[in-house]
Amino acid sequence: MTETLAEPLTDREALPVELVDDAGHAIGACPVSQAHQPPGLLHRAFSVLLFDTTGRVLLQQRAAVKTRFPLVWANTCCGHPAPGESVTDAAANRLAEELGLTTDLTEVGVFRYQAEDADSGRVEHEWDHVLIGRLGSARPRPDPAEVADFAWVQPDALRMRLCDDPANYSPWLGGVLEIADEAYHRTDG
């Protein structure tokens, strides 16, 4: 008789995040769950936004089981690098885990934000590195534990939606979009 061992599930809330100061310098670490308790501890994060050949951006609707901002629309993927881990490597791994996609990623900026999820009481307080990539013909294969849905959207249409219905979108998406879209156009789209 042969037994097949299932891969152990990772408790993402127990993984370490890198705490940073107001200038983005590493100052320590703590578990994800602790960093997101009110008032929130400033920590390193990343947000990926992929563009297709026509300039549309790939959004994901966060899965219902997410502990912060479930079922809202957000950038292609996001997460936290482990302390000392390359942001680009962590982002590429997360992109593959969440959407089954691989592409070259380029870091194009960083911004800081803080937002409370009124439903869970948890807080995002992040030093967010923004990365972009281009996707040709590959089709997302989302992990249903991470992603409820996905959609390709023109940036200008997304800006209008963010203004008209902000509660349907993550509080960091506007900042990610502005940095990513400017960088995309700077590199001749």
Score class of each variant (00 low, 15 high):
Glu7Arg: 15
Pro8Met: 09
Thr10Val: 15
Thr10His: 14
Arg12Lys: 10
Arg12Ile: 14
Arg12Ser: 09
Glu13Val: 04
Val17Leu: 03
Val20Tyr: 05
Val20Trp: 04
Val20Cys: 05
Asp21Leu: 01
Asp21Gly: 07
Ala23Thr: 10
Ile27Asn: 06
Ile27Arg: 12
Ala29Lys: 07
Cys30Asn: 07
Cys30Ala: 09
Gln34Ala: 14
Ala35Thr: 00
Gln37Met: 11
Leu42Met: 12
His43Ile: 02
Ala45Lys: 08
Ser47Phe: 04
Thr53Ser: 06
Leu58Arg: 02
Leu59Tyr: 03
Gln61Asp: 04
Ala63Asp: 10
Ala63Cys: 11
Arg68Met: 11
Leu71Phe: 04
Trp73Tyr: 05
Ala74Arg: 04
Ala74Pro: 10
Ala74Leu: 11
Cys77Leu: 05
Pro83Ser: 12
Pro83Gly: 06
Pro83Ile: 11
Glu85Arg: 08
Ser86Val: 04
Ser86Trp: 12
Ala91Thr: 02
Asn93Ala: 15
Arg94Glu: 12
Glu97Ser: 14
Gly100Glu: 13
Leu101Gln: 01
Val108Met: 00
Val108Trp: 07
Tyr113Arg: 09
Tyr113His: 12
Glu116Ala: 13
Asp119Gly: 14
Ser120Gln: 08
Val123Trp: 02
Val123Gln: 01
Glu124Ala: 02
Glu124Lys: 01
Glu126Tyr: 12
His129Cys: 12
Leu131Met: 13
Ile132Tyr: 01
Ile132Asp: 07
Gly136Trp: 07
Ala145Thr: 15
Glu146Phe: 06
Glu146Trp: 11
Ala151Phe: 07
Ala151Ile: 09
Trp152Pro: 01
Val153Asp: 03
Pro155Ala: 04
Ala157Gly: 08
Cys163Pro: 01
Asp165Met: 14
Pro166Trp: 15
Ala167Ser: 14
Gly175Thr: 11
Val176Thr: 15
Ala180Trp: 05
Ala183Lys: 03
Arg186Pro: 04
Thr187Cys: 06
Gly189Cys: 09
Gly189Ile: 12
Gly189Val: 13
